[in-house]
Amino acid sequence: MRYIMTIFWSFLLSAAVSYVLSSMGGEPFLIENAIILTVIFSIVVFVLGEGILKEKTE
């Protein structure tokens, strides 16, 4: 379930970022850019959550 929610929130955030940046640049909003950014955000969150920021149990 956490993977689905991570992808969902990554999509919402990347769509917002993509929309704002395309509006500032005067370009049309393309959903493909948001999907690409979603994949990048999700991979970064998965790597950070499962590997780098893993809590040490003693």
Rank of each mutant, 00 (worst) to 15 (best):
L37Q: 10
T57S: 13
I35Y: 02
L21T: 14
S23K: 15
E58S: 09
I40H: 01
I35A: 10
I40Y: 12
K56S: 02
L37G: 04
R2W: 10
V45R: 12
A15Q: 02
V39F: 02
S22P: 04
S23P: 07
L48N: 06
V45I: 15
G49S: 14
E32C: 05
I7N: 12
F8P: 00
Y3S: 09
L21A: 15
R2Y: 12
S14E: 00
F8G: 02
T6N: 05
S10K: 01
E32Y: 00
S23M: 14
N33D: 03
T6L: 15
S14W: 01
G26R: 09
L12R: 00
L37A: 15
F41T: 02
N33Q: 04
E27D: 06
W9E: 07
F8A: 11
I7H: 01
L53G: 08
L53M: 10
S14G: 11
L21Y: 13
W9L: 03
F46E: 14
A34V: 01
A16E: 06
Y19N: 01
P28Q: 11
E32K: 03
M1A: 08
S42A: 14
S14L: 02
E55T: 11
L53P: 00
L12T: 04
F11G: 05
E55K: 15
S14T: 14
T38L: 04
M5R: 14
I7E: 13
E55S: 03
I43T: 13
I31T: 06
T38F: 00
K56R: 09
E50R: 09
F29W: 11
S18Q: 13
V44I: 05
R2L: 15
G26W: 09
L21G: 12
M24H: 03
S18K: 07
F11N: 04
F29Q: 04
T57C: 10
S42R: 00
E27S: 07
I36L: 12
L37C: 12
V17G: 04
I40N: 07
S42C: 04
F8T: 05
E32G: 03
I7F: 07
V45M: 09
A16M: 12
F41H: 08
V45S: 14
V44C: 07
L37T: 14
W9D: 02
E50V: 00
F29Y: 14
I4M: 07
G51F: 15
Y19D: 06
K56N: 11
Y19W: 15
I31L: 09
Y19C: 03
A15I: 05
V17I: 15
S42I: 03
L13Y: 11
W9C: 11
I43L: 13
T38C: 03
I31V: 10
I36V: 08
I7T: 11
A34E: 00
G25E: 08
E58K: 06
I4V: 14
V20P: 08
V17L: 11
I36S: 09
A15S: 06
V17T: 15
S22A: 03
I31F: 00
L53V: 09
V47D: 05
I43W: 06
L21C: 07
E58Y: 06
E27N: 09
T57D: 14
E50S: 13
V17C: 10
F29C: 05
V17A: 15
R2P: 11
A15R: 05
T57I: 13
A15C: 08
V39A: 10
L30M: 13
E50W: 10
S42K: 01
